[in-house]
Amino acid sequence: MAIPAGRADSAPIARTKEERRRFLPNDFWRFVLLCVLSVIFLAPMYWMIITALKPENDVISTPTQWFPARPTLDNFREVLTSPDGNILRWMWNSFFVATVFTVLHVLLCALTAYPLARMKFPGRDLIFWIILGSMMIPWVVTLIPTYLMMLKFDWINSFHALIWPGIAGAFGVFLLRQFFISLPKELEEAARLDGANSFQVLYKIILPLSVPALVTLAVFAFMGSWNNFIWPFYVVTDIDKLTLPVGVTTFSQRYVTEYGKLMASTAIASIPVLVAYLFAQRYLIAGLATTGMKE
């Protein structure tokens, strides 16, 4: 043990030393470039925050204040108590809709992906290819007919319109089927011998083993619902039922050039996603990296 360990230790050290000597100037400039790019990428965020903290007069005054001379929270106070719409209400609406949608979508996709991945029955492959093939339908084609259906269902200005139409998304079935197929058959067979029925196999074996895939799908579903813009923009117009992205645009139409208030509203709207991103970053990046990447 000792000798191979010693060899294994010395080899990387020698290599890193060599690499360090060779790459130091290169890495330094790479680091500088990354810092410059980071400043450029963060500049809009900085501009948003300092604008939100300036009194409206200072926002439009020239020369530009690169840092707020008289910082104030007035913009935030006015946005939060605005008579033109309750931004916290919109945030709650978005959260509620996205949560219900995510739970139902993941459940529905798991129930569908399970027999497609783990059972043999006539028409299985045909059903799978029909579902996968539906991804070829450009959603713009269904936008207007679905809107007309919402009119008929009397779902305009209802959360039903924000939850149900997107629930049968093919991508979720695809993602979970791929994951379920990759699970070893032995555990399932053992459970079968112990007398478990197919549903017990699903929720006692398949689902617990699939937590990473389920979380990835849930993160995608939640983000998709939370960020959905064009559909809620047309299907919900009642000011109390707006979702956050749409609500914020009503502010942008009302406070056209009152950028202090506008930036306070966009800052408030950004806080939950930025916090969520810090927690879900791992799943988001892992999920992104596994979609459509295989050769």
Binding site: F41, P44, M45, W47, M48, T51, M223, W226, N227, F229, L244, P245, V246, V248, T249, S252, Y259, L262, M263, T266, A269, S270, V273, L274, A276, Y277, Q281, I285
Partner: peptide, 17 residues
């Protein structure tokens, strides 16, 4: 990656400004 988590309307208002 951070800007990508913003919703399109927030991003739009920000860039309009």
């Amino acid at each position: 990656f951070l800007p990508g988590v913003l919703t399109v309307s927030v991003m739009g208002i920000l860039w309009r400004w």
